[in-house]
Amino acid sequence: MSRFWKWVAVSVAALLLAGFVFLSFMAGSPKDVYGMVRYAFPHMHRGTLKVGSDAPDARIVALDGVSRFHIRERTHERPLVLVFGSFT
């Protein structure tokens, strides 16, 4: 292996290590890096909605587990603050 390619390999390894350390810091621990890459990244999307876009509709299930309603049913007379989240 030429000296050039050795430097390339070392640089790439250093970048990967720096990325791993950075993600470990962001996620909390090296174990959390796996969780972030395996479970979080595939579900995180910036989306295409912008201010001024028509708000998309979606059918929502009520807390009784049976009734349904649509987001757009609640967007007529006043602004609707729409909060998405989960328990954990």
């Binding site: 999307h45 909605l49 001024g52 876009s53 006043r78 602004p79 603050v81 729409l82 998405f84």
Partner: peptide, 19 residues
Amino acid sequence: AYAAWPERIYIIDESGRIA
């Protein structure tokens, strides 16, 4: 539809647009 996960807030105005 809203690229909502894991948590996100939108405000929709009376005309049905993202405010």
